[in-house]
């Protein structure tokens, strides 16, 4: 299997953290993984995106030009990356913040009200985890166990109740699709 993923949204939405979690979970599952962030003058409220590759074979290039899955966390990300998704690929859209509809009819589209789900759990900060949970369920590229095991590694300074909340948000995301 091979999954090239682009995650995109605002700075502050946890795009980079979610990407690292995805890569860590893939590694925990015994897959080859790479993670590559857009870097430079990044800031809260600006744009943030990253590429993750999860593969059962050695990964030659970490550059994801044409993603198999695009995780869209905000409106501008849809316009920016929609055209690059591979035919037959997956568009995972946070419909809480994205009003627009994709123009493509050759990709699978899945809407998730990630911010609403997260807010009901107490904080919109975990909307990224809801999306990752949905991604895990839809693609099977990473396991829930892999994700759960990776949380403490990716967030070493987080308290146990935060880790538990993240884990719960992953589950809610899986249930939402």
């Amino acid at each position: 299997m091979y999954q090239g993923v682009i995650m995109s949204g605002f700075g502050g939405q946890g795009i980079i953290s979610a990407g690292i979690l995805l890569a860590y979970a893939g590694m925990t599952d015994g897959k080859y993984v790479t993670f590559f962030p857009a870097y430079g003058a990044e800031m809260r409220g600006g744009t943030a995106n990253c590429s993750v590759v999860i593969s059962s074979e050695e990964i030659a290039s970490p550059v994801v030009a044409y993603p198999d899955t695009l995780v869209v966390m905000n409106e501008p990300s849809l316009a920016r990356f929609e055209a690059s998704v591979r035919k037959g690929g997956l568009l995972l859209i946070n419909s809480s913040l994205v009003a627009g509809k994709p123009k493509r009819d050759d990709v699978k589209v899945q809407y998730i009200q990630a911010n609403e789900i997260a807010e009901k759990m107490g904080t919109t900060k975990i909307a990224n985890m809801v999306m990752i949970g949905a991604y895990s369920k839809l693609t099977g590229a990473i396991s829930f166990e892999g994700l759960k095991k990776s949380l403490q590694k990716v967030f070493p300074r987080a308290r146990q109740e935060i880790i538990d909340l993240d884990s719960e948000a992953l589950k809610k995301g899986m249930e939402a699709v």
Partner: peptide, 10 residues
């Protein structure tokens, strides 16, 4: 280069 510097891998 910046790609190898910024990317994460096992």
């Amino acid at each position: 280069d910046g790609l190898l510097g910024q990317m994460m891998e096992p």
